[in-house]
């Protein structure tokens, strides 16, 4: 049966590639390189801060394609020898998957000198096949008009929510959100690392959660319309909301730390060597400040000095934790299934 399946797949792929894009020739100095960016202000920042740096240094044009991680991973998988993307930005899990499938090139400080300025937690867990340019932890945004003294630690917060202390005025990330499974791991860490306890706590919180949110925009809508007083949310997005004339909203990272999200930049294996220079630009202090000014997420280069108005909103390296994605990746299918079945 598998043979039949393979034959049909090959036949179908042959048919489909008749109209497929022409392969990009991998030479040392191509006319352009293709890089990825999330839409909106992310793409604008990539063009202004990263692409301009690369073009100035190499004379090679940069084409920015927008989309999202899973879509780009699929494009690389479909054509690994002639990838339509040269430098790809992937989520933590997709980067691990791409690395395990042999789709990415390993970087060293000789190819990317600025890598030396990036703390190990932002690239070593991915075997140096990817490096994060920014980081942003999940913390708590709350309505200070309703909650004057928010709990100091995650544990106190979760237990307080489960006890109904804040009423049904909470929004929390869903276990099926892109960073939902890592956040389940993070909750488990507050209770000794037992995932069963994390699920028990989440089930106890459920009656007081207006929605386990699936998208950040969905979550912000609940908070902005004051349907919830407590929102577990990303720091950069929270400060962007607070600084837009919402002084009643406050943000903090409960003790001991906050789980961070990363965006991993990788050179695709079939990309020309000059693509390394793009990643070096991404990690350069100038580009990191420029990017932080636009998207309000701090860069991972530890030598960067930010203006005071930015620095006050940035969570220091010491207060963030990167989940061990290489360990939890195998557990994600069962956690998602468990979430679907138990959190109904």
């Amino acid at each position: 049966m598998k043979r039949i399946a393979n034959v049909t797949a090959v036949a179908a792929l042959c048919a489909m590639t008749l109209s497929g894009p022409l392969a990009f020739g991998a030479t040392d100095k191509p006319d352009k390189i293709v890089v990825t960016a999330f839409g909106g202000v992310w793409a604008e920042s990539v063009k202004k801060n990263y692409a301009s740096c690369f073009e100035k240094k190499t004379g090679v044009k940069v084409e920015v394609v927008t989309g999202e991680s899973a879509e780009w991973l699929n494009k690389i998988r479909a054509n690994p020898d002639h990838s339509p993307i040269d430098v790809v930005t992937l989520s933590e899990l997709d980067s691990l998957r791409a690395g395990r499938e042999g789709l990415l090139s390993k970087m060293t400080t000789s190819e990317v000198p600025n890598l030396a300025q990036v703390p190990a937690q932002f690239h070593v867990p991915w075997g140096d096949l990817g490096v994060s340019s920014t980081y942003g932890p999940m913390g708590i945004m709350y309505n200070s008009e309703k909650i004057s003294d928010p709990p100091k630690s995650w544990k106190d917060l979760i237990d307080g929510i489960a006890a109904g202390k804040y009423g049904k005025k909470v929004a929390w990330p869903s276990g099926t959100y892109a960073w939902g499974p890592p956040f389940i791991w993070f909750i488990a860490q507050q209770y000794g690392g037992d995932v069963n306890v994390a699920f028990d706590k989440l089930k106890a919180m459920k009656p007081y959660v207006v929605k386990f949110w699936e998208t950040p925009v969905d979550a912000l809508n609940l908070f902005a319309t004051k349907q919830v007083d407590i929102l577990a949310y990303w720091d950069g997005r929270s400060y962007a909301f607070i600084n837009k004339g919402n002084p009643w909203a406050k943000f903090y990272i409960p003790e001991p730390n906050g789980m961070t999200s990363l965006v991993l930049f990788s050179k695709v294996k079939s990309a020309p060597p000059i693509a390394w220079e793009y990643i070096n630009c991404v990690l350069s202090p100038e580009a990191q400040v420029g990017n932080a000014e636009m998207i309000r997420y701090p860069g991972t280069n530890k030598t960067v000095a930010y203006p005071a108005d930015l620095k006050k909103d940035f969570t220091p390296f010491e207060r963030v934790v990167v989940p061990p994605y290489d360990q939890i990746i195998e557990k994600i299918p069962s956690w998602v299934e468990r979430w679907n079945k138990e959190m109904r």
């Binding site: 899973a70 899990l93 997709d94 998957r97 869903s174 099926t176 959100y177 892109a178 939902g180 499974p181 929605k211 386990f212 699936e214 998208t215 969905d218 994600i332 299918p333 998602v336 979430w339 679907n340 959190m343 109904r344």
Partner: peptide
């Protein structure tokens, strides 16, 4: 996905989860 919750699950939403979160 936007107007429902975990109890309002349908097949297309499960497919979306498997592709974007689980990668199965």
């Amino acid at each position: 996905m936007l107007l429902g919750n975990a109890s309002t699950m349908v097949l297309p939403l499960l497919i979306y989860q498997q592709l974007t979160v689980v990668s199965d």
